[in-house]
Simulated assay, not measured.
Amino acid sequence: DKVHVHAAWDSEEEARAVGEAIEAYQRQKHNLNDMAILVRASFQMRAFEDRFITLGLNYRVIGGPRFYERMEIRDALAFFRVVANSGDDLAFERIVNVPKRGLGEATIRQIHDTARALRIPMLEAAGNLAESDELKPKPRAALREVAANFERWQKALETTPHTELAETILEESGYTDMWKNDRSAEAPGRLENLKELVRSMEEYESLRSFLEHVALVM
């Protein structure tokens, strides 16, 4: 067959066109196992994965995890989830010490115990411990900063465009700088994935609506 060139306005339009082509091939009795999409970088997979999930097309990623399963994406989403819902303890526990803040297992366990004893979210428990004498100065200061950050971001949630807020969260948390300072071969790709994640949020009205979408595709 001849090679066909298709010009697309953006990644979403490209994904729609590819999805339509795949469905057309399926109607012609072609097998999905005989089709493949080659991408230059992992961040380009996001639009295709979203589209295939919407269409109900089965797919598998070769050479790495799916976009939303990548570590940096899960970390970023955890930050966003806690901002949108301070009671999301699983998300909070994932990123309370990301980037490294000098919080050991004993401190995390103490946050757990306090939250359970008082029946409050871990974020609130962390804030309470930060203002008490139950921790040493270093972890207390780290938790005070974490609590202050989330309080500030949650206030901004209602007034700041969600894509701008997402960038702010990743910057102010130190997460973006963590990967900028990382000298591993994977770091540049992780930064590109984070940029794609934020860019993809433009399609949604709010942070919460974006997170609802992600919950469906993960």
Rank of each mutant, 00 (worst) to 15 (best):
L129I: 14
A47Y: 14
F92W: 04
P121R: 12
R190K: 14
G87W: 11
N128Q: 14
E72D: 10
E72K: 11
R208D: 07
R183I: 05
T168M: 11
A126C: 08
L216E: 07
N128R: 15
L118T: 14
M218C: 09
D113R: 07
R190I: 05
M35A: 06
H162P: 00
F48N: 14
M122W: 14
I111T: 03
R190T: 04
S200F: 02
V83Y: 03
A125R: 04
E69Y: 12
E124N: 12
L77F: 08
E158D: 02
F92G: 03
V214T: 13
H6A: 13
R140K: 10
L216M: 08
A76N: 05
R70T: 01
I169D: 01
L165Q: 08
H112L: 00
V198E: 09
F80C: 03
R116G: 05
W153R: 07
I37G: 13
K180Y: 07
I169V: 09
G127W: 10
S132Y: 04
E158R: 13
K2V: 06
Y59F: 10
R81N: 11
L170G: 12
S206W: 10
R116P: 15
V18I: 15
S200H: 10
F48D: 09
E14A: 13
R190G: 04
A84K: 02
T159C: 00
H6M: 11
Q44R: 06
R70E: 05
N58Y: 12
I37E: 08
S200G: 14
A147M: 01
I37S: 11
T163I: 02
L170V: 09
D177H: 01
Q110P: 00
V3A: 06
E205S: 05
E203R: 15
L165H: 04
V18S: 07
K180N: 07
V98Y: 03
E145F: 00
I73G: 13
I169T: 01
L38N: 06
G189T: 00
G102D: 04
E69Q: 13
D50P: 01
K100C: 00
E172P: 05
L207V: 12
G56A: 14
Y59M: 05
L38F: 15
V198Q: 05
M178W: 05
L57P: 00
R208K: 10
R183Q: 13
E14G: 10
N33L: 12
I111Q: 01
N58E: 14
Q154H: 04
R51C: 13
A185V: 11
G104L: 06
M71Q: 12
L135G: 02
A84T: 03
D34V: 04
E145N: 03
K100T: 00
A130V: 06
